[in-house]
């Protein structure tokens, strides 16, 4: 038996921690386990993947997982930019943080088990926030245990409760809620699997020229939307100076470029006039 799990999330959501916690749960139940994050130029909000392997025999694989049994999607918007279904085995499982129902998922496998849970809602309800952002990794592990996986929720609760100290109780409650509230359904897909052609990249010497938005329109990274109250703003430029993404423009007044603002909210804290407030972002078009 070798179960492989792939986690999709964004930097700061705790995908790497979730992957390691799962390995710890498996290990404490007597299985061999391994947790392998993939690191790029990681920043808060950037797409992140991590892998967990669980086996009853020693694990010698030291490569990434390309054909997972289970995929955990921590961020509802990440499906817009990453193909989370890629390589998932027929009859495999997708555990998604979403407000959608399992039937709304579209994929090219013939059948997949879809486990849908509103982990963001559960995190906000249980006050699981770090730097104001909802932390969904522990409730997502709760939902994951509804999949075909020989791990017990009591063991997960025990490890999380011990590890997170004062925050432990809230996390354990969120895990149990996600486990209970998740909807599990076997869903039919199109059955027409696409095999993407490999891109040939030829670079003789690494040269890059200045350009705008090489990572695409990064507004999708945003959980919260900052807003400038121009009645209070005295145009001191403090926000413009501190914005790590240069997403505050200098026109007549400072202006937030909502195509690229990642919602880090640095501007709201550096504004001496408290002229920048924020609210939860809801994208009409996603």
């Amino acid at each position: 038996m070798l179960i492989s799990v792939r986690f999709h999330g964004r930097g700061g959501q705790g995908a790497v921690t979730a992957s390691k916690l799962l390995a710890e749960v498996a290990n404490s139940m007597g299985y061999y386990s391994q947790s392998m994050p993939f690191f790029g130029a990681e920043r808060r909000g950037a797409p992140v993947i991590s892998f967990t392997r669980i086996s009853d025999e020693p694990i010698y694989e030291m490569s990434q997982v390309y054909h997972p049994n289970i995929v955990v999607v921590l961020d509802p918007l990440i499906m817009k930019v990453v193909d989370v279904f890629a390589g998932v085995k027929e009859g495999g499982t997708i555990v998604a943080n979403t407000t959608k129902t399992p039937d709304e998922f579209v994929f090219s496998q013939r059948y997949l088990n879809i486990i849908a849970v509103d982990a963001t809602g559960i995190a906000i309800k249980n006050d699981l926030l770090v730097a104001g952002l909802p932390v969904v990794n522990t409730p997502m592990l709760g939902a994951l245990l509804r999949a075909q996986i020989p791990l017990e929720i009591e063991v997960l609760e025990g490890i999380v409760g011990k590890k997170f100290g004062e925050e432990g109780e809230k996390n354990v409650k969120a895990i149990r809620e996600a486990y209970d509230l998740a909807t599990v359904k076997l869903v039919r897909g199109s059955g027409k699997r696409k095999y993407p052609r490999k891109k040939k990249i030829k670079v003789e010497f690494p040269i890059s020229t200045p350009s705008e938005g090489v990572a695409g329109k990064t507004k999708l990274w945003r959980d919260f939307r900052p807003k400038i109250d121009y009645e209070k703003c005295n145009n001191c430029l403090n926000c413009w100076l501190h914005c790590p993404e240069s997403a505050i423009r200098l026109n007549e007044h400072v202006e937030i470029d909502y195509d690229y603002c990642k919602g880090c909210l640095v501007c709201t804290t550096v504004c001496p006039k408290k002229a920048i407030t924020f609210e939860r972002e809801v994208f009409a078009d996603v």
Binding site: A23, N27, S35
Partner: peptide, 12 residues
Amino acid sequence: YDGFVLSHTSMP
């Protein structure tokens, strides 16, 4: 030991 492959991978 291989960077990331071992340096950042967790195992017992």
